[in-house]
């Protein structure tokens, strides 16, 4: 694990306007209210927090799906805030997303083969068709989907399989950073660990960096190196996994940790006191 910083967010903000009447003062939801953090190469940063605390918005800001209001995002030493459309396209190649809902994130009318070829068609216009097919097959194989499924449609797969396809799609451009927005929270618990382990294996193989967004602390504990805790648009604490789970500093982190279901109920009560 190198010490180089792959992506850094400096004081990024995103306010969403709320519709109000004509004469009322304009109001905003402060979805992300000036947060700063960085992710090193090869590292996994877990981002936790309750729903609506701005963790998904943070992921989308980093990926440029929604523009930041202020602050800067530095990827591989370059500021993305003022990047042109073409430059963004280049960055996107190196920065991919895995979405929460594997049922909705794959085009329902496209075959698996075409869904996976799509990123290649966008970014590698000169790659031959054979080469593309080979890359698709290899990667699907690594993600545990047989090549016999290439001509099937997404609706023919289970949730876990679809999420594997989603991961394969994110990996096909050989990115450096994967932003995983609750990648396992829509899956059965038994499938969750399979997908998490797949993500870990792929990280080792391709030297990937993850931003792992989740509300499930045990999942985050399993996969992260460092953990950031978000609360109402603010990043209240960011530290190594051990630090967060054994020695939480912020009150909200403590509350969050005490909400993990315990094997022995008494132990939990003690934690809350």
């Amino acid at each position: 694990m190198g010490d180089d910083i792959l992506i850094e967010a400096k004081n990024i903000k995103k306010y969403f306007p709320i519709k109000t009447g004509w004469f009322e003062e304009k109001k905003y939801v402060k979805a992300v209210n000036g947060i700063s953090f960085h992710i090193k190469k090869g590292e996994t940063l877990g981002l936790v927090g309750e729903s609506g605390c701005g963790k998904s918005t943070t992921g989308r800001l980093l990926n440029g799906l929604i523009p930041v209001d202020s602050g800067s995002i530095i990827f591989n030493g370059k500021d993305l805030a003022n990047a042109s459309k073409n430059e963004w396209k280049k960055y996107r190649q190196k920065m991919q997303m895995v979405f929460q809902d594997p049922y909705a994130s794959l085009s329902p009318r496209m075959k698996i083969k075409d869904i996976l070829r799509e990123p290649l068609d966008i970014h590698f216009k000169h790659m031959s068709s054979m080469e593309k097919d080979k890359r698709v097959e290899d990667l699907l194989d690594k993600c545990g989907i047989s090549k016999f499924h290439l001509n099937k449609y997404p609706y023919e797969f289970s949730g876990g399989q679809r999420q594997r396809i989603g991961i394969a799609r994110a990996l096909i451009l050989q990115p450096d950073l994967i932003i995983a927005d609750e990648p396992v929270s829509a899956l059965d618990v038994s499938i969750q660990s399979q997908v998490l382990n797949l993500m870990k294996d792929l990280q080792d193989e391709y030297n990937l960096t993850y931003l792992f967004i989740s509300h499930d602390l045990s999942v985050v504990e399993h996969i992260s190196d460092r953990v950031g805790v978000m609360y109402f648009g603010n990043l209240v604490e960011i530290a190594t996994k051990e630090e967060i789970f054994n020695n939480p500093k912020h009150d909200y982190t403590k509350t969050l940790l005490s909400s993990i279901p315990q094997m022995i109920p008494k132990a939990r009560r003690k934690q809350m006191n």
Binding site: W88, F99, D101, A104, S105, L106, S107, I122, L173
Partner: peptide, 11 residues
């Protein structure tokens, strides 16, 4: 969501 996914791919 899949439209957003395509956008994030750089389409």
């Amino acid at each position: 969501l899949f439209v957003e996914a395509e956008e994030s791919l750089g389409a």
